[in-house]
Design a protein around this nucleic acid. Sequence first.
DNA 1: AGCACGCCGACT
DNA 2: GTCGGCGTGCTC
Length: 825
Amino acid sequence: MQFAEPTDFAERETLFVEVILPLSLAINYTYRVPYELNDRIAIGKRVVVQFGKHKMYTALVKSICTQPPEFYQAKYIIDVVDDIPVINEKQFEFWDWIASYYLCNEGDVMSAALPTGLKLASETILVIREELPEELVLSEKENLIFQVLQKQQRMSIDDVVELLGQKTVYPIINSLIAKEIIFVAEEVVEKYKPLLKSFIKLNPFYKDQENLKQLFAILERAPKQLDALLAYLKLSRTDQAVPRQLLLEESACGQAALKALLDKDIFSLEKRQVSRLNQMGDEFEVNFELSPAQLHAFNEVQQGFEEKDVVLLHGITASGKTQLYIKLIEKAIANGGQVLFLLPEIALTTQIVERIKQYFGDKIGVYHSKFNDNERVEIWNKVVNGAYQVVLGARSAVFLPFKELKLIVVDEEHEASYKQHEPAPRYQARDAAVFLAHLHQAKVVLGSATPSIESFYNAQTDKYALVTLNERFGGVQLPLQQVVSIAEETKRKKMTSYFTSVLIDDMATALENKEQVILFQNRRGYATILICATCGYAPKCVNCDVSLTYHKTSGKLHCHYCGYHQSSINICPACGSVHIEQKGFGTERIEEELSLIFPEAKMARLDLDSTRTKNSLQQIISDFQDKKTQVLIGTQMVAKGLDFDNVSLIGVINADTLLNYPDFRAFERSYQLLAQVAGRAGRRDKQGKVCIQAYDESHRIIKQVMENDYLQMYADEMDERKQFNYPPFTRLIFVNVKHKDANVLQLASNQLASALRQQLGSRILGPEQPLVARIRNYYIKQIIIKIEKVAPVQKVKTILKDTIRDFNAQKDFKSVITQIDVDPY
DNA sequence: AGCACGCCGACT
DNA sequence: GTCGGCGTGCTC
C-alpha cells in the first residue's frame, strides 16, 4: 500500500472516451481507456479501436469523461495514434455545425474532412499458433489453409478467399480459431508514407584538403569514380548532401562507380524525407499597383469589414479582382494570420492559381481532389505547423486544420460546384466558409462577376456589405456581342447542321486570321425536352416556371418540382407546327459536324469525358495555348478561369438548352454562364467577338447578357422567386427516398410525405419523380420541403429528423433509404 | 461500412 | 446436405 498523491489519484481514474468513427453512424461510441494510456489520451487525437468483431478503425476522441456507460461494458481502446491532436477545437465546432445544419452524421463529416491518409486501414491477418493441439481433426478446406499457414506463418482473409475460391470463409476460419490452430491478428497500417529520397554524402575525412588530394590520386585510375567525385564537389557547394539521382545525372558515372565509392566508405548514403509537393522556385517580386478603381474598391472592402463580416465583391470580368484579392491576402497574413482562398475545382488548374503562387511563393498550398492521399496529408501538416499561411483549395479545403484564419476569399462564389451533392455531408462550401469565418472571427470576401441571387439578396438586405467594381482593368475592350436566331435561319434554310451562317462566317474569318475559336455547348443539352423546331416553343409547367421534361417511360411531360404532369404534345400549341423534336446533343456531335465544315482546323473537346485523368485537362489547355489546336469545343469548363490571348471568337451553340433546363435557377445560371463565356473573348489588345445562337433570341436573359445588365436580371429573378416561393424567400430541403422495389417506394414515399405533412402542412411538396427515377437499381422519389424564411429552421429540421427516424423504424420500411439535402443547390 | 445470423432456393 | 444470395440487426 502507498499513499496516493492527488495527481496520482487523478492518473488512476478510469477514463472513458466518446469517439467519432469514420462511418455513417447515427451515434458516437464510448470506449474505456486503459490506465497506461491515460496520460496520452486527449481530445482531437486519433485512437485505434475495435468496432464489431473483426474491424479496427481509427476513431477520433471527441470527449473524455469518468462516468462508465450505464447499459453496457465499454471495450478498451487499443492505442493512441497521435502525440498531438490532429483536430483542434474550432474544427470540432465546425464539424458540429455541418452535422446539424446539413442533417448528417458526425462520421460523415469526419470521412469528408480527414484526408484518407490520416485514416488508418485495418487488415485482418491470420496467424498460425506456435503450440498446436496434439490432435488435429481438420476438414479438407481447413487442412488446405493449415498447409499454407505452416509454410508462410500468416495470411490475409483475402488470401483465404483466393485459396479456396469461395467467398464464405468466415465459418471455416472460425472453426480453425475454435480448434486453437490459428488466431487473428488485426494490423493497423498507417497509410501515409513519407517520400524518401537517397542522398550522397562525402566522408568528412576528406574535408581536409590533404586527404582530398590523396583521394584524387587514388582515383586516378578509376575515371568513372573520379567523375562522380568531381560532380559531387561541384553540386555540394551549398548543401553537403547531394541527391543521388542528381549526382548520377550530372556525372554520368553510372551506378557501379557510385556503389564502389560507397563500398569504400568514401561516400555514404542517407535516406531523407522530402516533400512530395512541387518545390516552388525562388520567391520573386511581382510588382503591380492597383488602379484607382481597384484601390477605391480595396478601401471599400476594408470599410465593409468594419461593419460586416462578409463583403460581396461584384466585379465584372477583367476588372482585376485577382489583384484585389492578392492585396487583401497580403494584409491578412501580415500579422501571421491564415487565409483560405476557395475556388471552384476546375479553376484550380488555371492561371489564377499560378499568379497567386508566384506572388506569395512558398507560403502557399494548393488543395484539391486531384492530389493523392500522401500529398494531401502533407498539405494538412503544413497548415498545422504554419508553413502554409495561404491555402488555395476546392470546397473540401474548408476542413483543413486552420488555427487562426483572418480571411476567407470565395472566388466565383456563384459556382454550383461549391455544393457537394453526394455523399453526405451535402454541404455548400461557400456558406460553410461564412460560418467558419465566424468561428475564427475572420472576414469573408465573396467575389463574382455574376453573384448568386441569394448572395446579392444578402447584400441588398444589409447582411453583407457590397462593393462594386465595374471598370475593366487596363482598358480591355468589351467584346462585340451578337445574337443569332436559329428559328430565323432555319426558316431561310441557312443553317448548316447546328450552326448558323453567321457563326460559320465568323469562324471562317477567325481561322483565316490564324486566330482561335471557343465553342460552348452545355452538357445539360443531353436532357430530353420537347422543343418546336419551327418556333422554339418548349412546354412549361403551369405551377412552376420550369420546362417540362419528357419521360419516355410514361410518355408524359413532367415537372419535377411540383409533381405536375401532362400528356405529351404532337402539335405546337404556340404556332401549330407538327415539327416537335426531342432535344439533346452534346459536344462530340458538334465536333463531328464541325470537322465536316472545317476539315483543316484542328479541334479539341474539353468536357468531363475528355478530362478524367490528372493531366489531360492541362494537356488540352496547353495544346490550345500553344496553338496546336484552333478550335476548342467545351461545356461549362471553357467558361471558367481560362484566359487565352489569341481567342477572337466565342460561339454559344444553343443558349436555349440552358434556359429550358427544368430548375428554378435555370435563368440565373444561364445568365451567369453566358456572361462568363462572353467575358472570355479578346482580353488584351484586340476586341473579341461573341456569337450566341438561340431559338428564342429575344429572351430577356439573353438581352440582359448583351446589355450586361445584372441588376435587371436580379430584379426579374426576384419577382419570379417571390411569386413561386423559391429561395431566397424560402429555404429548400430535399428528402430523397430510395428503394429497390418501385411499389414499396411508392407506398413508403407517400407515407413519409403525409407524416411530414401532418406536422409541416403545405411546406411539404411531393413525393415527386426526379429526372432520373432509378440509379443503380434503386428507385428514387423526392419530397421537397419549402420553409418560409421567418419559420424556425432548426425546429423544422428536428421534426424532419424525428419523423424520418420513426418512419425508418416501421418494419415494412426498414430497407428504405432516406437522404436529406439541405439547400440543395 | 462490414459482418453475423437466419432464411431460402439451387446444385456438386 | 452444402453453398451462395439476400434481408436485417448490430457494432461501445
